[in-house]
Structure formats: C-alpha cells, structure tokens
Simulated scan of single mutants.
Amino acid sequence: MCKLYILHSKSLDKFYIGHTCEEIKERIRKHLSDHKGFTAKSKDWMLVYSEDFGSKSEAYAREREIKNWKSKNKVKRLIEKTG
C-alpha cells in the first residue's frame, strides 16, 4: 500500500506534497528530522491529507497531478472536501 500525502506548515503557510510506500508516521518523522531539503525549513509539518494507492506508480502519478495544479487554493479545496 502506498500513499499520496500532503503536509502543512503553519509557520511557513506552505504545503508539501509527496508519496511514500513506507509507514506514513515514519515518513513524517523523516521530514521532521535534521536533513536538507524543502521540509527542513520548519519543524511543524502536520499531515492534513492522504490517499491510498495500490502501487508506487499510482501514488506518484497522483502527486504529479496535484503538483501540476500549481494552485494553493485548489490544494486547500481538496483538503476541505475531506474535512
């Protein structure tokens, strides 16, 4: 089982969109650890949305689809629909 996930940082007011086939708690722990990369800019990332997929390629395709929106408001509407 793989997941598409969206994290939000309140301090940055930014979303991070990714996918993983590992346990989501472990993936978030890695985002919150000391590392280089986009999510290293903040330590308050929270999971705000996820979708399950049967394969890595499906989860990655959905990640690319959402990233191609290039719209913070569209991402917010997606999250709100699951509210």
Rank of each mutant, 00 (worst) to 15 (best):
L32A: 05
D13L: 14
S11F: 09
W45G: 00
L12W: 09
K36Q: 08
Y16C: 09
G18R: 07
M46K: 14
R62W: 01
G37N: 06
Y5C: 01
K25H: 04
G54V: 02
F15N: 09
K67A: 03
N68R: 14
R64S: 10
K41W: 00
S42H: 07
S42K: 08
S33I: 07
G37F: 13
R64H: 12
G18L: 08
E65T: 15
W45V: 01
S57W: 11
E51W: 00
S50K: 06
N73A: 13
K41I: 03
V75L: 09
R62L: 00
R64F: 07
K72W: 10
K72V: 13
Y5D: 01
I66S: 03
K76I: 13
S55W: 08
R77W: 08
H31T: 13
R77L: 14
K72Q: 12
K10F: 15
K70T: 12
E65Y: 15
E63Y: 00
L12V: 07
Y49W: 02
A61Q: 13
G54Q: 11
K41Q: 11
Y16R: 08
Y5N: 01
S50R: 05
K43A: 06
Y16H: 14
G18S: 07
S71L: 05
E51M: 01
T20C: 03
D52T: 03
T20F: 08
L32N: 05
H35V: 13
E23F: 10
H31C: 13
L7M: 09
K67G: 04
R64T: 12
L47Q: 01
S33M: 09
Y5I: 03
N73D: 13
R29Y: 06
K30D: 14
F38P: 02
A61K: 15
G54D: 13
H19N: 11
S71K: 04
F53T: 00
K70S: 09
G37S: 09
M46S: 15
R62S: 02
Y49K: 01
W45F: 03
K56F: 07
K81S: 12
K14Y: 11
R27T: 06
E80Y: 06
K81V: 02
R64G: 04
L4K: 08
L47T: 00
V75E: 05
E65V: 09
S71F: 10
Y5F: 04
K72C: 05
E51R: 10
R27Y: 07
S50Y: 02
Y49Q: 02
Y49P: 01
F53R: 02
I28T: 02
R62M: 03
D44M: 06
L32G: 03
K72F: 15
E26C: 09
G83V: 05
K76W: 11
S50M: 00
H8R: 12
Y49I: 00
D44A: 02
S50T: 05
E65I: 07
